[in-house]
Design a protein around this nucleic acid. Sequence first.
DNA 1: ACTCTGCCTCAAGACGGA
DNA 2: TTGAGGCAGAGT
DNA 3: TCCGTCC
Length: 370
Amino acid sequence: MGIHGLAKLIADQAPGAIKEQDIRNYFGRHSRKIAIDASMCIYQFLIAVRQDGNVLQNEDGETTSHLMGMFYRTIRMLEHGIKPVYVFDGKPPQLKSSEVREVVSLLIRLQIISAICTLLSNNLLTTTYLSTMLVIILSAHLLNCSACLQIFDVAYIHKIAITCITCISIVLYISLRKDQFLYGQLLHMKKLPIQEFHFSRILQEIGLTNEQFIDLCILLGCDYCGTIKGIGPKRAIDLIKQHGCIEEILENIDSNKHPSPEDWLYKEARGLFLNPEVVDCSTVELKWSQPDEDGLIQFMCNEKQFSEDRIRNGCKKIVKSRQGSTQGRLDSFFTVTGSLSSKRKEAEGKGSAKKKQKTGATPGKFRKGK
DNA sequence: ACTCTGCCTCAAGACGGA
DNA sequence: TTGAGGCAGAGT
DNA sequence: TCCGTCC
């Protein structure tokens, strides 16, 4: 979820801190590794890959939509010479609702991980950081992730985010989350063109310190705690400028007009922003090698009932992409769907007979189908 | 007049044969 | 589910 | 390019 309305606030208050970059500008200057928010990715597949409103699944009723999506998308990236780094940040959006969802989500992720492990011919039980053609970063913490300890999850996000940014010359961080540049993240890429958020410039233009900016984000609304009633982006920024920190603001506003949440954990949230747990980058090892085709067939075809032809075909593409070390272009990989900055109605276009029949199925409900 | 809230709608993947 | 955008209405 | 299908 990120910080509520942060992108808009920055666009309004510090427009100079955002630079739009053509994706071509990233070629040649950096390696071609791309970090991808795996949770968001998986979630999108679960929502989008459906048949008659239901997720795809094998005979046992196990969901396979996400496997399908990850498999093909990864291959597409490899074909274009991109090395994806899937980042499991430990807290996909659906986790917030209930413990049941959390467990389900964890299982889904483990399923993905085991699929990847098969592909990587690695042993999940003995390997914390895995890699071959594609790279997965995960932590042993993921396996122990407790339904109750949201704080724990949060720390985990930070840890991984920092890891990615600092240690592996990531070119792009594809993510829908907007709070991540709080930790030094510079690039936000939902669709093209890529937006670069320059953090120091943001502070400079708005005229806040790092700590004040974090307090501002808390006031706007973050994942970790509530907000003060009646304080939106405009008032929040004025109050921060005027008083400097949340403590001072609380002392100077009318608590009747602007009640703060009970047991407001803003200090804890602030602590998480200020002192994210950082993993020792030297423990992260990334390497790319050949896929384990037999293992992949076993998992994807025998267990998940994917078409063997399609999987083998995919393996061929992976091998070929490595041999040729193709220099494909990112912009041929990412679909450009017109100017995002313009209004949706404009992008709507006329001939878009793209209406997928949703058959009135309630989204978010994963039925067993049998 | 300005600001915030709440509610609404919208879109969200990839392959391959025709 | 999610974020974004639009809009009406209420509060200040 | 469209659209049925993928599992």
